[in-house]
Amino acid sequence: MSREQPSRRPTIYDVAKEAGVSHQTVAMVLRGQGKFRPETLKRVSAAIETLRYRPNNAARALATSSANRIGALVFELQEVGPSKTVQGAALRAAEAGFLLEIVSLPLFDGIGPEHSGESDAIERALGLLDRADVAGILALAPVDRLLSLGSGPVSVPLVMELEDASDPGSTLSRRGMDLVIDHLAGLGHRRIAYLGGSPTWLASRRRAEAVRAALARHDLEPVAELTGDWSASSGAQAVRALRPADLASIGALVCGNDQMALGALLALDEQGVDVPGRISVTGFDGIPESGFLRPPLTTVKVDYAVHGRRLVDSLLTRLGRPVPDPAREPAPDDIEFLARASTARSGELRAP
């Protein structure tokens, strides 16, 4: 007897209803956790086949699969931050007895989430990772579409790279931007602008929020908020697009990452704007090349390997697994402020 298939993608709740068990039971069976009667496994397996629930190979692996992998969704591994984060996560996963499986998503013109193909790409990526041998997923490419999927179609825990911490002051962006703004305020800067990534990226919004919060502590607001896409070319384009009057109103430019700062430095030089005599410029990330720009870039160096390990620790906690050597391992500081020649006291070197 044929059965009409639902128009939407079936979920573990649909499988649970079909099999007459709880959704927690389905999730545990898919992950190979717990002990269940053969009759229960048979009903869950039959429900998966009937509903054609993804992953397709789950029913065949129900009784024997071992969840020994952690999936990682990433956008770009050529940049320092993402590559170092993945390296740290992979080492931490190995220490805990897991393999880190990387699935790369396209960048969609370098900005990301406003493309119609993004949802399909994310669905395909999740399909590759939502398997019986995958214990959990790290989303190292946090965009809005992933946020909406985080609690729905996957049957394993999913940890977002910049999801809100219980203490907002502990996030990398907040702590790093506090250091940047404190530095600029200490130099007498009051007219501070911010150049960030696309606001449809969670990382961009968190970093912009951190800048606004740090400025508010000094009773300041951004004199301008510019938008790039994390690339050097977008930083240059954002500065080139400023009207002369708007550029004249800026005393310091805080960039959301070092690449955009690199582009901004070029565009300012093209327009004859002295850095730091006329405008101070800061970056974020601490890429190795940041100290060799002209002038060397004031930035926040982030130890992304530590960040990657902590993301895995967060996932392990969600999974109820022990964190490797939690008492023996020191808690290294994952950020360091580097004051260099791209910032100076407000008006200190300005021509009369």
Results as ranks from 00 to 15, higher is better:
Leu77His: 04
Arg124Tyr: 05
Glu123Asp: 13
Ser66Leu: 11
Ser104Asn: 01
Ala93Ser: 12
Ser83Thr: 09
Ala96Asp: 07
Ala63Gly: 13
Pro82Gly: 05
Ala59Phe: 02
Arg92Lys: 14
Gly88Arg: 04
Gly112Val: 06
Glu123Thr: 14
Gln78Asp: 14
Gln78Glu: 13
Gly97Ser: 07
Leu138Phe: 08
Leu128His: 12
Glu79Tyr: 14
Thr85Tyr: 00
Ala125Gln: 02
Val80Ala: 11
Glu79Ile: 12
Ala135Val: 00
Gly88Ser: 09
Glu114Ser: 13
Glu114Ile: 09
Asp144Cys: 07
Leu107Asp: 13
Gly127Val: 06
Asn57Glu: 11
Ala90Gln: 13
Arg60Ser: 13
Gly136Met: 02
Ala93Met: 04
Leu138Gly: 10
Ala89Gln: 09
Ala141Gln: 11
Leu99His: 15
Asp130Cys: 07
Glu76Phe: 12
Val86Glu: 00
Ala89Lys: 08
Ala125Leu: 00
Lys84Trp: 10
Leu138Ala: 09
Asp120His: 12
Leu91Asp: 15
Phe108Ala: 09
Leu138Val: 10
Glu118Trp: 04
Gly81Ile: 00
Arg124His: 09
Phe75Cys: 12
Ala141Thr: 12
Gln78Thr: 15
Gln78Gly: 14
Ile70Ala: 08
Leu77Asp: 03
Asp109Tyr: 11
Ile102Pro: 04
Leu128Val: 12
Leu77Ser: 00
Asp130Glu: 09
Val74Ala: 01
Ala59Met: 05
Gly97Asn: 01
Gly136Gln: 08
Leu100Val: 07
Phe108Arg: 14
Leu140Pro: 06
Ile70Tyr: 08
Ala121Cys: 03
Gly136His: 04
Leu129Gly: 05
Ser104Ala: 13
Val86Gln: 08
Phe98Ile: 03
Ala58Thr: 07
Leu126His: 03
Ser65Cys: 15
Ser104Asp: 05
Gly81Lys: 02
Asp144Lys: 12
His115Met: 02
Phe98Met: 05
Leu138Trp: 02
Leu100Phe: 07
Ser83His: 00
Leu107Gly: 15
Ala125Val: 02
Asp120Asn: 13
Ala59Asp: 04
Pro106Leu: 01
Asp130Ile: 07
Pro142Met: 09
Lys84Asp: 08
Val86Asn: 02
Thr85Leu: 12
Pro82Phe: 05
Lys84Asn: 02
Glu95Pro: 00
Ser104Phe: 01
Leu91Lys: 15
Glu79Gly: 15
Leu73Cys: 07
Pro113Glu: 15
Gly110Phe: 03
Glu123Met: 12
Leu100Gly: 03
Leu99Ser: 15
Gly97Tyr: 05
Asp120Ser: 14
Val86Asp: 01
Leu62Gln: 07
Gly88Asp: 06
Ala139Glu: 13
Lys84Gln: 11
Arg131Ala: 04
Ala135Lys: 05
Ala89Trp: 00
Leu73Ala: 03
Asn57Val: 07
Ala141Trp: 00
Arg60Gly: 10
Ala72Ile: 13
Glu76Val: 11
Gly117Val: 00
Ser66Gly: 14
Ser116Phe: 10
Ala59His: 05
Phe108Met: 09
Ser65Tyr: 06
Pro106Val: 06
Leu99Ala: 15
Ala67Lys: 08
Arg131Gln: 12
Leu138Tyr: 08
Leu128Glu: 09
Leu107Arg: 14
Leu99Asp: 14
Pro113Cys: 08
